[in-house]
């Protein structure tokens, strides 16, 4: 086998992951190739060195920073929670529609014509309300006239009935 192929097998060879056949091929190659044997000894040294890197302890300062993290996060959330709850969403929707309409009005190139038509609509609405109010006034007068007539006719009926009884 060529050196390149053997070098790919060196790491699994160290970890004892090769088949019996591959192991023999690697062993035979290593006996005749000083380059690959030196690479194997370096690989072995690397493996040993990396495994020997100790675990470092976490500094007190970092631990304190980590302990206060959830509190910090909660503080940010408390401020936003009120606006983010589902029951507040219709209000947000209405507010955003309102802002869209307002910005449409303010930034429209024909702002004047919109303003005029709005004014017209407001006037029309106002006059409709006035007419409606006047109509209700007439209706009220009609109603009181009807009431007077009705009471008068009742009175007349009553006197008629009483007069008839006296004659008998």
């Amino acid at each position: 086998m060529k050196c390149e192929k053997i070098q790919d097998l060196l790491s699994p060879y160290l970890e004892n992951e090769l088949s019996a056949e591959e192991k023999v091929a690697v062993k035979n190659h290593l006996q005749t190739c000083p380059g690959c044997s030196s690479l194997l000894s370096n690989l072995s040294e690397i493996h040993e060195s990396l495994a020997g890197f100790p675990e470092l302890e976490v500094s007190q300062d970092l631990l304190e920073r980590l302990y206060i993290l959830p509190r910090k996060k909660r503080k940010i959330h408390l401020g936003l929670d009120f606006f983010l709850r589902p029951s507040f969403q219709p209000v947000l929707a209405v507010a955003s529609i309102f802002f869209v309409l307002i910005s449409f009005y303010f930034f429209h190139p024909n702002k004047k014509s919109i303003h005029q038509s709005l004014e017209r609509q407001v006037h029309l609405g106002y006059s409709k309300i006035v007419r409606l109010y006047a109509k209700t006034g007439y209706f009220k007068e009609d109603l009181s006239a009807f009431k007077d007539n009705f009471l008068d006719s009742l009175q007349q009926q009553k006197t008629k009935l009483l007069g008839g009884n006296e004659d008998e």
């Binding site: 070098q7 790919d8 790491s11 699994p12 690479l39 370096n42 040294e45 690397i46």
Partner: peptide, 20 residues
């Protein structure tokens, strides 16, 4: 994963060899 580990170790071994 196995091929990446293998490649990484070989790269380190070659660097160590050069330095030696």
């Amino acid at each position: 994963i196995k091929s990446r580990v293998n490649r990484g170790r070989l790269q380190l071994a070659r660097i160590l060899k050069e330095k030696k």
